[in-house]
Design a protein around this nucleic acid. Sequence first.
DNA 1: TAGTGGTCTAGACCACATG
DNA 2: ATGTGGTCTAGACCACTAT
Lengths: 244, 244
Amino acid sequence: MLDQTGVDARLPLYLQLRDLLATQIRAQKWQPGQPIPSEAELSQTYQVAVGTVRRAIETLMAEGLVERTHGRGTFVRKARFDNSLFRFFRFESADGRPLSPKSVIVSRKLVEAPAQATAALQLKPHAKVIELHRLRMVDAQPVLAENIYLCAQRFKALADKSPEQFGDLLYPLYERECGLIVASARETLTVETVTAAQAKLLGLKEKTPVVMIERIAFGSDGQPLEWRQSRGAASKFRYSAEIR
Amino acid sequence: MLDQTGVDARLPLYLQLRDLLATQIRAQKWQPGQPIPSEAELSQTYQVAVGTVRRAIETLMAEGLVERTHGRGTFVRKARFDNSLFRFFRFESADGRPLSPKSVIVSRKLVEAPAQATAALQLKPHAKVIELHRLRMVDAQPVLAENIYLCAQRFKALADKSPEQFGDLLYPLYERECGLIVASARETLTVETVTAAQAKLLGLKEKTPVVMIERIAFGSDGQPLEWRQSRGAASKFRYSAEIR
DNA sequence: TAGTGGTCTAGACCACATG
DNA sequence: ATGTGGTCTAGACCACTAT
């Protein structure tokens, strides 16, 4: 049965089952890439019709938590960091080939959230956040300066870990260390003129135009997880988006 | 029955029904805003189970062709030109309110497609295209200069119609005059320095940074319909995108 | 061949909107 | 009260994957 499993009993059955399975997937009850029980099995253990199980799993699939293959089974999706969330702005070499930038964490501080961060992350006033300053490098040249804000409470595992061990990509880190999966994001682009400090960091002349990309990243439950601002020389920028 | 209605009989039933309904919606069998027959009725007329009808309609809903309201019915979605496809780049007044720009068609020519256009629109070499030059104005000030390319064959209705009657939005025009619906698009943003000609059109100083937005718009069948390049002063730009 | 997901059916009951 | 879509069930049959 589904009662007394911590799910909201007022929800439709298939959503209760979805929540239950999602929790177990997050808790790593089944390893990424491994199959979850079959429809028939789940239908048995939870005493619901197969159709209801299907609907729950279809929801999970739409959310990107599982993958199904006809005849094989339903599998916990491995984190795929080659997907759209990781190629917003590409760095291109002169001949147009994509480059993968290296990351350097310049600083990590625990601070009271600035007003914009509380708004973006939907935090209470004066909540604590982890503030990261990061530089992204291509061929040892800095190309992007980033300010990243994370709710201190949810990301407390990152407050202790050494920033040298963060690696080049943050989202896999969030998933590994904090169990938080970035499922979607909203980005806003504007063009500004560099401040003196940014110019120095990025090795740019004064008054060079820079693109500022502001991003709010959301978890699979729609809660905002991360707010970041990234700035880089406008002349090197290329940004692609699909609209539906 | 669903045979001999022009749909692919090898497809699952629910997809055949989806195609059939989609065709009828496009042919305006039911007016936008008006209800399509109920599940029970469709189930009767086409002799399929209600569950199959449901699945077909769910697909149509996911594609944005219909809207359902519990207890009321299923309705053909009105063309909503306030949706994401029409607010890629917003023009904002000083106080942050969105502005709706006026359009002026500066020229319309029938020309042989330039190389980039043949690539973007997947045309044969030397195919003819309609080339539109358009200015978008806010408060009588030009803010955006656009070059638009359309396959002459499919958009031949626009070759005759007076450009003064095109109106401020092109996509509703494409739909009205040519029966072509823009369903999705891919945009690429870059930052450039204005050319002398563009500077004059837009009333900008030399070497001002401009944002160039290149867009390929696709029909519901995935075929490219329109290729355009839009340029405007970078300082006034704000561009938002959702990533999933 | 056995087990999985994919399609399809038929029907019950519920929740919502409308007259 | 009626008709609509939303949930849920139970079971049949098909198509794909593995062994």
